[in-house]
Write a protein that binds this DNA or RNA. Structure first.
Lengths: 255, 255
DNA sequence: TCCTTATTTTTTGTCGTCAATTAATGACTT
DNA sequence: AAGTCATTAATTGACGACAAAAAATAAGGA
């Protein structure tokens, strides 16, 4: 018999109360809506920062204690996360961090190519000189930042250009769809991204703006499409090169 | 003093317990998930059938009694309806049936044109002979049904063609976005549709399929775009011709 | 030794209850 | 008489509680 276990009959599921997830103080008191957003942001940030790996379970009670809120708020957040494909929600089995299959990744990038191409004509139709100037300014900032920051924080900056294009389309609906897709792509990139490699997308971005400003929409679409295909290929390479981590992932999922 | 009101001091908000909404028996016992879907479908059907007019309030308690479920289920349904833009959810003020502004309608149709155009190349790339045959069969059915049924039930059939195209694209993500947009468009059509007018879209649909099967994607896109612009114009005309109903709508919203 | 089974804990799904905000009227004031 | 204020109902927001399903292990059998 072990020394510490006092007569534990040992039948049934073992109690795992230690709650390995670090205990975070409930921070400053905030309104419920803000708390909800905080929880959402915290989970998204953890997934993006690879501290929550795909397949990890997210029990409601743990999140409740961790953030000091009731289950209704946690459920609402999980619902939203599921809608944004950050987590997967299985009936009666709870939420786990999403792990998109290679097939889904393909569909994701295909949809992204289609959407971004559809957005460009609207941009060309509506953007003014000042908008192009602001785009180019943003591209310069992005280029400078790329060398300065770690790519973890830089991940968001890379998408900013694409998001800005969606914004310039002047159509909020297409913009929201594009935001959703870009977020999911960023998540995929984050999942397969070994630290310290990031493609420089600067030149391709500049070319897209050039074509747009010249009024050559067709060329801009071609350039954008090629750029996105490049990005996908890059992900695929990384994905293949790290298939031993796939075992890790499965191991962790089984945990 | 009135005869029935026994000493009602009459101060404060009057009690309006009669619950004017007809009481529906809780029907057959179903699993919770099915009940949720039932509630969702019932509300969508009521909105589509113009029995729930824009601006109508949807109190949670009323829905609870009406369907015999707790508030959590109703809240989940309202959340979903809000996400699908069937209802509008205002903080602390409950849900009302959505009433899209003319501007939103414009953005909606613009987004739809963009999406449907993006889908066509994928369809042309992937559809096989059998798919085109099935499309044409569906078009014939649609044409026959158009003369037989009332347009209320026919509203769903009209969208079926477009949905099928989205399905044939082979991309579930684009298909879901297209479904969302088409649903919202159908809702707009339902809102502004006086009984007994429906455009015959048959010929235009056939032309799109013709072009697609010939491999002339560009022409198919042009045809589709024109078809959708026609549809939007038709809505606009109806909308203008019924602006006295706008007063009705506002009156009802103030109720 | 491996597979099946029984039991216990965990975890989710749903409901009812309480506090807080909003809406709607009558009463009061100018 | 019209506008403002106070009082009351209605309604949402959030929490905790109970029941049901799933998960995880030890015990028992082939």
């Amino acid at each position: 018999m072990s020394s510490t276990a006092t007569k534990s009959n040992g039948r049934g599921r073992p109690k795992v109360r230690p709650s390995v997830l670090g205990n975070r103080k409930p921070s400053a008191r905030a309104s419920a809506a803000e708390k909800e957003q905080d929880i959402y942001d915290a989970i998204v940030a953890s997934v993006m920062g690879q501290r929550l790996k795909p397949g990890t379970k997210l029990p409601e009670l743990a999140l409740c204690e961790l953030f000091g809120v009731g289950r209704s708020l946690v459920q609402k957040v999980l619902q939203r996360l599921a809608h944004d494909h950050v987590v997967q929600l299985r009936p009666n089995r709870g939420a786990i961090v999403a792990m998109p299959s290679p097939e889904e990744v393909g569909q994701l990038f295909e949809a992204r190519r289609a959407l971004e191409a559809s957005v460009l004509p609207l941009v060309a139709e509506r953007a003014a000189r000042a908008d192009y100037a602001s785009l180019r300014r943003q591209l310069r900032e992005e280029h400078k930042a790329m060398h300065r920051y770690a790519q973890t924080q830089w991940a968001g900056l890379a998408s900013a250009f694409h998001l800005r294009l969606g914004e310039l389309s002047g159509n909020p609906i297409l913009y929201r769809y594009l935001s959703e897709i870009i977020s999911r792509c960023s998540l995929v990139v984050a999942l397969f991204q070994p630290p310290g490699n990031a493609t420089c997308e600067h030149e391709e971005h500049v070319r897209v703006v050039d074509y747009l400003e010249q009024g050559n929409v067709r060329a801009a679409q071609r350039e954008m499409k090629r750029h996105l295909i490049d990005l996908e290929h890059h992900i695929r390479l990384v994905e293949e090169s790290t298939d031993q981590s796939l075992a890790d992932i499965l191991g962790l999922a089984a945990e």
